[in-house]
Design a protein around this nucleic acid. Structure first.
Lengths: 224, 224
DNA sequence: TATAATTATAGACACTTCGTCCATAATTGG
DNA sequence: CCAATTATGGACGAAGTGTCTATAATTATA
């Protein structure tokens, strides 16, 4: 009996240290085939009714092989997600500015660019994003993504706006932001990305910063 | 063999015509016990790992009895949801104004009141709302709720703003609105409703109409 | 290339949950 | 009180899960 370490022993979204040290090509091939099969099947038939055998069949693998790598299909899904999320986090946090004046033009431009990064990354990994945002798999997954965005907003607020928030709790703002962003992202992917990532970021940014008040008031010719 | 009609034969959220004709008290008692048991257990242990026997056990019923009323636990959940959703829809649509001037003050006040209604209704059925908004059960459920809100927004827009929307597709606006609203609703319920329903509606309405631009720009003393 | 180690595989296994069926008991509306 | 309906516990096969074993195939490396 050889010992193949399971991919997700503990919690989700934990970086696995041995992910680079896996020398054997069979392992990498097998796991990637499983991941691809899972994502494809989820988009085709949904997550819930998928059997382990469906996945291994699509991946051209024996069913027993599955359990050499993952405890169950949820572990496989979490592994797939972790990969992509780690990627995005690295990309965005590498984009963090050393110091920006609170509420400055530069900060605003940076924020809009950061949002565009999210849309761009989603486009690049559209399949996985659709799976996540559809809420397939454990309900906890999309909740965790939402929480991550909230946390990012709260951190941003603390860094860029130290003091009073007039009659608007930070939690409310963070959840509003995260909910709206994820909803736009979801719609965008599900409807075939009919606009560019930059466009989407601009629309979201505009809605978030300006609202729609001046759009609905009829005697307001100040907007194009 | 007696024939007890299943509660959700077809799609979800369909009004069951026989719901009033059910004379037998045993049926009403049984179904309500099942619904209550399900919701309580979901909040305690989550939906996915729940067995039918767990539900009937909590409801003090035999397992076979369950299948006299519902096909599976999803049908039971959908039935619970349908009840509450029907209630809300009736409440909100009864609140629809016969005619309002587009972009008028009256229309704005009506909209804010309609949003408050949603928060109030969520508070009254907090348990069920938490279950729905957590995304427990089929992923399709929360997606459908989101879609319902989007549709309502689109209908509202069509009625109240017939022509051009400058550089902002209606779909984008509707999804932004629905996502943000559901996120706020979720946070509000999960954190123990720390503000009043009217307050929440006001905050949401303000964010949606005014955005936060004037909150973050430092040299802007025009807001309190 | 040869070899030892590792991984993939098929099949069998016990186990759990599901949904159905039956005979019988209990409750209901009339 | 009675006929009709519903609830119950038990048994059943079907389906899926996760584990295990013996064997085959592949890999890394000497």
């Amino acid at each position: 009996m050889s010992r193949v370490p399971l991919a997700n022993p503990g919690d989700a979204f934990q970086a696995t240290e041995d992910s680079d040290r896996r020398a054997d090509r069979r392992i990498q091939r097998t796991r990637q085939q499983l991941r691809e099969a899972l994502l494809a099947l989820i988009l085709e038939r949904g997550y819930e009714t998928l059997r382990v055998e469906d996945i291994t069949e699509r991946a051209n693998l024996g069913r027993a092989t599955f359990y050499l790598h993952y405890r169950d299909k949820e572990a496989l899904l979490l592994d797939s997600i972790r990969q992509t999320v780690d990627e995005l986090l690295a990309q965005v946090s590498a984009f963090a500015p050393p110091h920006l004046e609170a509420g400055s033009e530069a900060a605003a431009r940076w924020l809009q660019r950061a949002i565009a990064l999210v849309f761009e990354h989603a486009a690049a990994s559209a399949t996985l994003y659709r799976v996540i945002l559809r809420g397939e798999g454990t309900a906890a997954i999309s909740r965790r993504i939402h929480a991550m965005i909230c946390q990012a907003v709260l951190t941003y607020l603390e860094a860029h706006r130290p003091h009073q928030m007039p009659a608007l709790p930070a939690d409310v703002l963070a959840n509003y932001f995260a909910g709206a962003l994820l909803a736009l992202l979801t719609w965008w992917l599900e409807s075939g990305m009919p606009y560019g990532a930059e466009e989407m970021a601009a629309m979201f940014y505009h809605l978030f910063y300006e609202g729609i008040g001046h759009l609905t008031l009829p005697p307001s010719p100040t907007d194009g």
